[in-house]
Design a protein around this nucleic acid. Structure first.
Ligand SMILES: [Mn+2]
Ligand SMILES: [Mn+2]
Ligand SMILES: [Zn+2]
Ligand SMILES: [Zn+2]
Lengths: 136, 136
DNA sequence: TAAGTAATGCAACCGGGTTGCAAAGATTGG
DNA sequence: CCAATCTTTGCAACCCGGTTGCATTACTTA
């Protein structure tokens, strides 16, 4: 059962199983980030641990990245084609406090800041809380 | 048993109980943020729920603010004297991936960014991951 | 001092995340 | 095409941080 998304999986060195195709499909059609518990509800039938490990695999292979918006469960969203999850790929995330959806603002890179002496930077997490366009 | 910190509690409309004085003392002597589980270990004797509610009270009255650095439990740190936890009081936090300590970088305000059309901002959380000065 | 209010202690619960292990499925060398 | 091997999946149990209900204790105040 070849799916159109198999190329993406293969490119990231992920063996395309049925489960993985389905999860990738959901991630693709969602315009906002999705959490493990949400994914569970989406499938009804699939096992939590399998979904969990699927997400972990996707994340390791940089097909998706994780977002902790502070609202509870960690959410996941597709990486852009060219993303390798390095500092230069980091972007701001937006969490709507009304609908609880979390958006990747790919066009907004995280601003660079100058740290105190002897502090070195590895990564940055910047989440803006507010009301999204859909919620007005 | 009057403590030197009672003034701070009273100023924030928090009745100074023994428990609260102790928790405030710990928060004051710590230079980095502290989590509920860490606080529990610090006291050995005190009840988790009480500590939990103490932190909640302190946070409500803006004596402390919470920091979710993504490393697990939420951490708490004292607010500055003049802080009212508004957008203009927001500062960057630094989480050391080596010692797991989390620092308030009070001198570094969160950079302002321009959101997409019809997205409104309520708050911002910016956490820098890296190695702190102590860990070199 | 008695009644009312606030804080504390204890226990139980919840939800997200994670792991061990056995069953099922895919791969490969012969 | 089969057997041995490796990978993925399903199930169950567990961990841990957070949260709540409720009874007890400590304060407050009339
Ligand atoms: Mn993103
Ligand atoms: Mn801070
Ligand atoms: Zn929204
Ligand atoms: Zn450190």
């Amino acid at each position: 059962m070849k799916k159109s998304n198999d190329r993406q999986l293969i490119k990231r060195n992920i063996k395309p199983t049925a489960m993985r195709e389905l999860v990738l499909e959901v991630l693709t059609e969602e315009e906002t980030a999705i959490s493990l518990p949400e994914l569970e509800k989406r499938f009804e039938k699939a096992d939590k641990a399998t979904l969990y490990r699927t997400l972990k695999t996707f994340e390791e292979r940089k097909l998706i990245h994780s977002i902790d918006d502070g609202s509870g469960p960690v959410k996941y969203a597709l990486c852009l084609e060219k993303c390798s999850c390095e500092v230069e790929d980091l972007h701001v995330h937006f969490h709507c406090t009304k609908c609880n959806k979390t958006y990747c603002l790919h066009e907004i890179p995280v601003p660079s800041i100058s740290l105190p002496k002897d502090f070195s930077l590895e990564s940055v997490n910047m989440v803006v809380q507010g009301i999204c366009a859909n919620c007005e």
